[in-house]
Design a protein around this nucleic acid. Structure first.
Lengths: 211, 211
DNA sequence: ACAGTTGCATACTTTGTGGTAGATTTCAAA
DNA sequence: TTTGAAATCTACCACAAAGTATGCAACTGT
């Protein structure tokens, strides 16, 4: 067996452990979940987990870090793209919405269990969160300077927009009344208004006073 | 000693216990806080707490329930008042903002520790949350019908607005860059835009195309 | 086929903390 | 001052769950 394959298998095992842990932490809380429960779901025993992770908190750290990394990536990718700030903001919100919906458990577990994330992971997460806010704020600022957006306080608007989308992890249910794409479209619309973008400038929208 | 005074003292003691518990739960998490720590802060011992509360979860239940009750009251009071929907929404958001800022620990602890709130309190909380959403949604609906607001989906807009304000518990710091009143004013402005209210109709605002 | 290494289960220890029984103090009323 | 009850402390228990020592089994490479 080539040694690359061992690593691949080890990575797969880690992934499966994280998968079950994330689901149980999401459903029952971090402290409300025992490692024996996680092991039982995987049809293994506790030492199996300990042979792949340092301790229980390491599981939480990985789960939380992934949620943050994906969120940052969604925003960063869209922000760094070409196009006018309105288009880029729309795309950033769309991707962030999908991250929240597709990785709801990661995001929810992180925000709830923040306090128990190991310091090393927590530091990395805080850096990513700072970068997330900076990217988003910079995009709003740019839009302001181009006269596309209008807000009194960019920092506050950033928090408001970020919160509006992040909050989705509390109410989103897969397979609900609305499709994921529809939810994302709607949220984009609401965000655009929040930052004072005049959607009547876009094609296919009725200006307010047409007669 | 009149028996009324005993009750008053008992209530005071309960309040002090809740006060310290709330602060510690907020700072360290519910499971991260021991009852011995709470007792130590009060300069008493554990059985003192048990003579006033059934168990640890009862503390959490009371803390969580209060946060929800105050949030609901803020929205309900403003919604049930007279005035046009825009004024009432503005007032509702203002009061809700102040609840989040003044009772941040209650709100934060509830959202984080949701899973560990006893069933009885949890049921009452869920009823209040449903009422919160209904009141807010009804107000948006009313504003829609009067042509003041414009959103594609009232339910989604309600969640977005509620989330934008609720999320404040994650970033608000007392004594920060902006005053509480200023933050509330700004949030009202952002919410009004989100629901499609045309603020240029208000006095003192410049219409977009004046020349 | 065999040696050596890796991986995991059995079964155990340890510790922290929620919760409690019973002793003791405090205090109002007589 | 005495008394009885309410309030609170001292000291303890029970137990759950994180983490581990030891050994066995299953692969890998020669």
């Amino acid at each position: 067996m080539r040694s690359g394959m061992r690593d691949e298998i080890a990575r797969l095992k880690r992934e499966r452990i994280l998968e079950e842990a994330r689901q149980l932490f999401f459903e029952q809380g971090y402290q409300g979940t025992t490692l024996d429960q996680v092991a039982r779901r995987l049809e293994v025993t506790k030492p199996f987990i300990y042979s792949h992770f340092e301790n229980k908190a390491a599981l939480l750290g990985d789960i939380a870090e992934r949620g943050t990394r994906l969120s940052l990536k969604a925003i960063a990718d869209a922000c760094d793209r070409k196009g006018d700030p309105a288009e880029r903001l729309g795309q950033a919100i769309r991707e962030f919405c999908h991250v929240v919906m597709d990785h709801q458990a990661n995001i929810a577990v992180y925000f709830r269990e923040d306090k128990y994330v190991p310091a090393a992971a927590s530091n990395r997460i805080n850096e990513m969160r700072a970068e997330f806010d900076e990217k988003l704020a910079a995009l709003l600022q740019e839009g302001m300077e181009e006269g596309l957006f209008r807000v009194d306080d960019v920092r506050l608007a950033t928090l408001a927009v970020g919160g509006m989308i992040s909050w989705m992890f509390t109410w989103y249910r897969a397979g609900g009344r609305l499709s994921d794409d529809h939810i994302a479209d709607q949220m984009i619309e609401l965000v655009m208004r929040t930052v004072g973008y005049d959607t009547s400038k876009d094609a296919g929208q009725l200006p307010e006073t047409t007669s």
